[in-house]
Nucleic acid binder design. Structure first.
Lengths: 345, 345
DNA sequence: CTGAAAGCGCTTACAG
DNA sequence: CTGAAAGCGCTTACAG
């Protein structure tokens, strides 16, 4: 037969009803073990694969999860973070034969529109929300749509939106204490986008740790994660007097740009300047010297998020009852490498 | 109404049949202009969005395109290439309200299995094939499935598989001629994976250009696009005697790793060593010196591929007739930057 | 131009 | 344990 086999074909071949085939295929009660065996054998032999649209229509499930990314394409491409995250999500999803539908968006309104459309079309069963903002409207708007979702980031204050996050405070303290122990007293930071939630956590984390250590000159300047802005800010830091002896960058791309500026200005790393990167991608090991960085398992972060969403899709009753779970992932830890060393006065 | 509106609801409100609603919504003949207006107004007012599964089931179209990526997650994350490509594809697809379904796979067999399943499930209408190999089984196997596809890469020899590609020969010549003009005579290359089709085109492109220029010592060593392998090979090149005065890398990540090795060995770039990268991502402008590289518009490459696939999906008759189109994109061109300079003997 | 009906390929109560 | 039937929400010939 050249046509795709349907359950009707299997039913006919097995001499049973379509309903029986459906029960057998889905491992539900309603058919005897012997009949089930026979039906499954025939289905396999015919190379049967259920039509997703038909199944979706009657079961009203899309067997797919959506991911809308609102970042400029060049930033997405540049940061290994996103592909690692996607890879982690995808591994869990495909294991449960869920699809992952991706769309890039520009504005927040466009992003919400995508969620509305996906949900109205029943193209996805749920979504994963990235890049949480301060006062993120999605935290209220997405649950309000009735669209199951998991926020990848936090912690957030919400009874309705589940989230997977890790602590951003502790690593800030760890970095500053490490640099302090190396003798650094003039430390600066090139921070990420100020409206991103985790940036604010780091702002306060660094601020508190700096105050505790008496690092009065500690300062942060916000950037957009691109190399250009990071280079400009680093240049400003390094040409000020007295210049910092250590700079912390909120991502790896900016740290590499900062290292480039140090080379450009003839400032030796780590002899005259220590550099610490956040997000320990393989990029940090490409450079010379290699970059000291805060390591976290981004792939695990993605897979944990997908896992939580799948669990909530599987048990909508539990998902509806009680406050939404908030899962904390292991905190990032410092991996000292070649770019940090003792401070010189 | 709390339930999603269906065409039946609209039909009832408008006092027409469901068929009429369908015709009006899809802009097909069969309803008068006045009726159409009225139906559309009601649909808008009700916030109607067609159920994708129902539409897919009756129209037997998924309104989605699949992309299976067979690369280690860390390579995918590291190379801006893929996200830029995806971004280009996605922009065309979402403009036509097609979804993009992504899956990461490990083996070729797994990849083919994904295509078979997607197609059998009718989860996608077509696929985009990346990373063409030498004697790639997909070139025959995917058209044999009846699954519409466009190869992103080539040129390939196939009457059945459409492709979008760009020439890899000319840039090789351009690079070597440029370096030759700068006085370089000992040139080495850190190549990409040897079984990838474009690597073989570059192998021959560089080989021919080197022969033409009389660069007898020109040599290529194949690597896997990671920084580790590139660093190892670069170290070998730079510690040999006489060492090359210029090294060409098949991607940006390897070029950055190579630059790191030069720093590590105290070899000044570009004074003592020139470096050229392939794939001009923003990464090439992060470093100091900035990397001379071969620029191509990866986003356009992706969007052109998606466009071709959409065109073939829209007109299956034309897609079935005649040899599959083979679209050539603009050739990469050299962007000289700080990492190349005159050769020193 | 319009309506009533069948059909896409599944799932799922509901009777036997 | 099994079968016959209705239904999911659309599209599309086929009559009027």
């Amino acid at each position: 037969m050249t046509r795709r086999p349907t359950i009707a074909d299997i039913a006919q071949a097995a001499g049973v009803s379509k309903g029986a085939v459906s029960y057998a295929l889905n491992g539900r009660p309603g058919v005897s073990a012997a009949t089930r065996e026979r039906i499954l054998a025939i289905a396999t032999e015919m190379g049967f694969v259920p039509n997703r649209a038909a199944r979706s229509l009657s079961a009203s499930t899309a067997q797919a999860v959506g991911l809308a990314l609102r970042r400029p394409a060049r930033v997405l491409g540049l940061e290994p973070f996103f592909m690692e995250l996607i890879s982690g999500m995808e591994s869990k999803l495909s294991a449960e034969s869920f699809g992952l539908t991706i769309q890039l968006v520009v504005t927040q309104e466009e992003e919400l529109e995508v969620y509305r459309r996906w949900w109205a079309e029943r193209r996805v069963d749920g979504v994963l929300l990235c890049d949480l903002h301060v006062d993120d409207v999605r935290v209220e708007a997405v649950p309000a749509l009735g669209l199951p979702a998991v926020a990848v980031g936090g912690p957030i204050e919400s009874e309705r939106l589940a989230s997977v996050w890790h602590d951003d405070h502790e690593p800030c303290a760890e970095v500053l204490e490490y640099l302090y122990a190396l003798g650094h007293r003039r430390i600066a930071r090139v921070a990420g986008l100020p409206h991103l939630l985790h940036t604010t956590y780091r702002d306060s984390g660094f601020g508190e740790a700096a105050a505790r250590l008496g690092l009065e000159s500690f300062q942060s300047i916000h950037a957009d994660y691109t190399g250009e802005q990071a280079a400009r800010i680093t240049r400003r830091y390094l040409t000020s007097t007295p210049r910092p002896t250590a700079i912390v960058f909120d991502n790896d791309v900016m740290a590499i740009a900062g290292l480039g500026v140090a080379h450009e200005l003839g400032i030796a790393v780590p002899e005259e300047l220590s550099i610490v990167a956040w997000d320990d991608s393989p990029l940090c090991r490409l450079t010379h010297p290699t970059l000291t960085s805060l390591t976290r398992d981004v792939t695990a972060y993605g897979s944990r998020s997908a896992e939580l969403l799948l669990a909530r899709l599987k048990d909508p009753a539990a998902a509806g009852a009680g406050p939404a779970p908030s899962i904390r992932c292991p905190t990032a830890s410092l991996s000292p490498r070649g770019s940090t060393g003792p401070a010189v006065a």
